[in-house]
Write a protein that binds this DNA or RNA. Structure first.
Length: 289
DNA sequence: GCCCAGGCACTCA
DNA sequence: TGAGTGCCTGGG
């Protein structure tokens, strides 16, 4: 990896396994817009950032060396060797080999736990455009403005928000879950302390929140706490696993988790991301057989 | 007009 | 303990 700063832009060269479209469109985050076929605008880590991917370089702006090194290298997980991960996964079976080749530029974003948790609570039984809309409305109403965009609210900015307020943002039955999450984050679910917890303890603690089941908890573990041994299993992943590994037969989540753990171990989360992107783009398993 | 969407809680055996 | 069902809302 090599990068230089010019005119409030960072130009990244000599990188591998990094495609901005695959990274943003693989379902792990919600606050991004495609502004041009090759350009994206993201709102994350208290900032608005544009990313323009060209053949051999990636341009980040507005951005200086300090921000790049202190925020974005970590956020985009640029110090992790994805070639090694992909090589390891490719050896497990031919299906995985294909999935990895198909979306070889995915990186797991290191999102802030608070934003990640609330976003995935909103995501349940919901579709992506609506999820983005609700999170955008929440940010606009309670977050801080920056460069014409609204940052995701901080914990302090949501302390006095009521269930009715969330409901007014069209969160529906998720409004009470948001309210409960805020109450518990202030007491028994201390996100800062949980960073040091074991994954199983972390998961069960998150699940104390109403509206947080294993799927939402696992997404938070993976995308907010960087626990890449989990295997978040939503309907898409369930379908694609059944299609590719279980002969199209209806298979319960427990069996899928056991299979993923046995086959991919501590990098199961990466496997999940490659499979998810592969499945969704090719619409694999959309119609159950 | 109905069905579904990146689940979860609640109820009832 | 497991299966069945309802849920806000908007788009197809």
């Amino acid at each position: 990896m090599k990068y230089t700063e010019t005119d409030n832009k960072i130009i990244l060269t000599e990188f591998d396994s990094f495609n901005i479209e695959e990274t943003l469109e693989c379902g792990q985050c919600f606050r991004f817009e495609k502004t041009d076929p090759l350009k994206y605008e993201i709102v994350a880590c208290g900032r608005v950032l544009n990313i323009w991917q060209q053949e051999d370089k990636m341009i980040f702006y507005p951005c200086n060396t300090k921000d790049f090194e202190e925020i974005w290298i970590d956020y985009f997980d640029l110090n992790t060797d994805y070639n090694a991960i992909k090589e390891k996964l490719s050896k497990t079976d031919d299906v995985m080999k294909r999935a990895v080749e198909y979306a070889s530029g995915i990186r797991i974003l290191k999102q802030q736990p608070f934003e990640c948790l609330l976003s995935f609570i909103i995501s349940q039984n919901n579709n992506i455009p609506r999820i983005k809309g609700i999170i955008g409305a929440l940010s606009q109403k309670y977050g801080t403005e920056s460069d014409g965009k609204w940052l995701f609210p901080q914990y302090e900015q949501l302390i006095n928000v009521t269930e009715e307020d969330y409901f007014a943002l069209k969160m529906g039955f998720r409004a009470k879950y948001m309210f409960d999450a805020m109450q518990k984050i202030g007491t028994e679910v201390n996100l800062e302390k949980l960073k040091a917890a074991q994954t199983d303890e972390l998961r069960s603690t998150l699940m104390l929140i109403k509206g947080v089941g294993q799927k939402v908890a696992d997404c938070t573990l993976m995308f907010g706490f960087g626990r890449c041994e989990v295997f978040p299993t939503d309907v898409w992943v369930k379908r694609v696993m059944e299609h590719l590994y279980f002969d199209g037969k209806d298979t319960d989540i427990k069996t899928i988790h056991a299979f993923a753990k046995q086959r991919w171990g501590d990098i199961a989360g990466y496997a999940q991301q490659y499979l998810f992107y592969y499945a969704r783009t090719l619409k694999i398993g959309k119609n159950k057989s």
